[in-house]
Design a protein around this nucleic acid. Structure first.
Lengths: 340, 340
DNA sequence: TTTTGTAGTTTACGCGTGTCAACAAAAAAC
DNA sequence: GTTTTTTGTTGACACGCGTAAACTACAAAA
């Protein structure tokens, strides 16, 4: 653990010069730069991050909040996290995992005030998310995976492109001849948190339905597969002409799929199923395998982290990955032409 | 962001006294303690973690390595992470997510030398895992989820209790009258990393098989469900008397299950299926739902983190959660009596 | 009264860095 | 040749805390 002083002595320069070589905040002549670089290499020098953070007032650490209560923690959250963590590392930052049971940000704020955190990434964002205000009020930078009601502006976020996703879904479904479609969404258990994604998708589906001449009827369920299974009968009873189900609720969707199996309802013969939020790893377990339009979670995590860090560093928004992601339609075995 | 100096002035004591009140490393009279406490509360004081780390030589930050290459990152890894992160928070530590593509620890070592990391938790541990030596050689504390070949000693780890798991599995299976069992394990794609869990489970299954009078025949597959599906025919051809499959390979298991569905092989009539490593969230997608003995990943992450931190702080190993976890047998729909 | 002891508190410094203001040397302008 | 400007480098200090060593006050022992 060599220090700056040792590097300076070995290179025959002052400590300040070593610092400026590292940060590039002052012009240093090429020969001196080389001497310093050589000395650093020889000593295996790495600046002490704690000292950097203390002197510079920035820790270059961000936190990713995992809300563990409302609907549990899904595999998709892990992908967000891995994408964000990898991006952070690429940019010289680090990402700490921050599980929260109750969506409270008190501890996060305290930790940020203690200098450990420069910023926070939130998931499962509500349309009116008080966490965002609370954090911004005390001067903590916030990045979102998802988005509040605020229109673009200077918000730092990565989110699904709900409009495009809905259009892709209904264009595909309408193309197969389906006219009556059930749209399966989530009902939060316990504390009601209206996630922004839900509202936005509902709106987008409504609009896209009109555009493609498809009747979209909304159904709700918890994320418990058993609840999804119980929904099959009501859906078919209420509107017998329904020939397709599009779901934003992966848990309920697999339950519903299982129920079709056990009741001998042909998929995709009688009913086509399209999931808008099922992670790749999950699909392999379903049979028949679900047709999906899933958001690229890893890339969204990456984008959110890069945007937050760009915001922290005050660098521009050029060369950043996209803000909105529609996700690709992957046709598998649960969708087909509507019955005549 | 009040500082120690302000607290000291408000309380009418020296800065050192404030420090000692916080750390408890010197005896301070009760009245003074109360004055200081009151001053801290009034100012909303939080010690600056960067300064603490710099002065104290400890960052109280640990990293969790996510190996993203060999078999991808599974949901179980997220649970390890959440358990470890929560434990860390409870103990005043923080856990950074550290994805690694190639199992290299060079960057981790560099970061630890820079003072940001006090220790590291490794997953997917090999019997002879060079990462452990590399880290320990440079004085970085290591905790394991899993375990190397080293017998207990002073190793810091949480691992599955393979013997108990194997006994539970075979006791249950033998009790159903099965005599010939296929044991389905993982074949690493690409770089061959022999994960310790694999070796240990094989041994345990062998021993337990003898004990319960069950013939256990080993089969290998990648974690790709399609590969698992392809294994059904060979298994039934090679040893027609096989009536049960026990799997350590969740991916292959779901593929195999799907293959029984599509080939009309009755589960559990003709073949019973028992998975030893399928996360809860995954099970809900399978139909019929898999009987499992799964390790409690959250608790194992918790245990590993607590043990690593206890090691770092030099506190004893009393009051720590268990080191070995067998996991509970959850009987669902894929196991039943052996055919006569 | 002096000495010894002890509990409680403070002084003083180090941890390793970022960066401002000052400075020397070289180049440019006059 | 002198003054001004530019370029490159450095000394000095601040960041906020932990802690060893010194010190004070006061009680107990001699």
């Amino acid at each position: 653990m060599a220090t700056r002083a040792e590097v300076a002595k070995l290179a025959g320069v002052s400590e300040a010069t070593v610092s400026y070589v590292i940060t590039g905040n002052r012009k240093i002549s090429i020969p001196v730069q080389k001497r310093v670089q050589k000395a650093m290499d020889k000593l295996g020098y790495r600046p002490n991050r704690m000292a950097q953070a203390l002197a510079g007032g920035k820790s270059r650490v961000i936190a990713l909040l995992f809300p563990t209560a409302a609907r549990g923690v899904a595999h998709v959250d892990l992908e967000y996290g891995l994408g964000a963590a990898q991006a952070a590392q690429d940019l010289g930052y680090h990402l700490v995992m921050w599980p929260t049971l109750d969506r409270s940000v008190q501890e996060v704020i305290a930790t940020a005030k203690s200098g450990l955190l420069d910023g926070v990434i939130l998931m499962e964002v509500a349309l009116h998310d008080e966490r965002v205000e609370q954090l911004k009020d005390v001067g903590i930078a916030v990045g979102l995976i998802g988005r509040t009601a605020t229109e673009f502006g200077d918000e730092v976020f990565a989110d699904r492109d709900f409009d495009t996703a809905a259009h892709t879904a209904l264009n595909y479904i309408a193309g197969l001849g389906h006219k009556e479609v059930a749209f399966l969404t989530e009902k939060t258990r316990g504390k009601p948190v209206v996630v922004a994604a839900l509202t936005r998708t509902k709106q987008a589906m409504k609009a896209a339905g009109k555009l493609y001449g498809v009747n979209v009827k909304n159904f709700e369920s918890t994320t418990d597969p058993d609840d999804g299974a119980k929904l099959l009968a009501p859906i078919l009873d209420e509107i017998p002409k329904i020939t397709a189900v599009i779901s934003l609720n992966p848990g309920a969707m697999v339950g519903l799929l299982q129920e079709t199996n056990s009741r001998g309802i042909s998929v995709p013969g009688r009913l086509s199923l399209l999931s808008m939020a099922t992670p790749e790893s999950f699909v392999s377990a379903t049979s028949p395998r679900l047709t999906t339009i899933s958001p690229p979670a890893y890339e969204m995590g990456d984008s959110a982290a890069r945007r937050l860090i760009a915001h922290l560093e005050g660098t521009g928004v050029e060369n950043l990955p996209p803000q909105l992601w529609a996700g690709e339609l992957v046709v598998r075995e649960t969708t087909g032409p509507a019955q005549a």
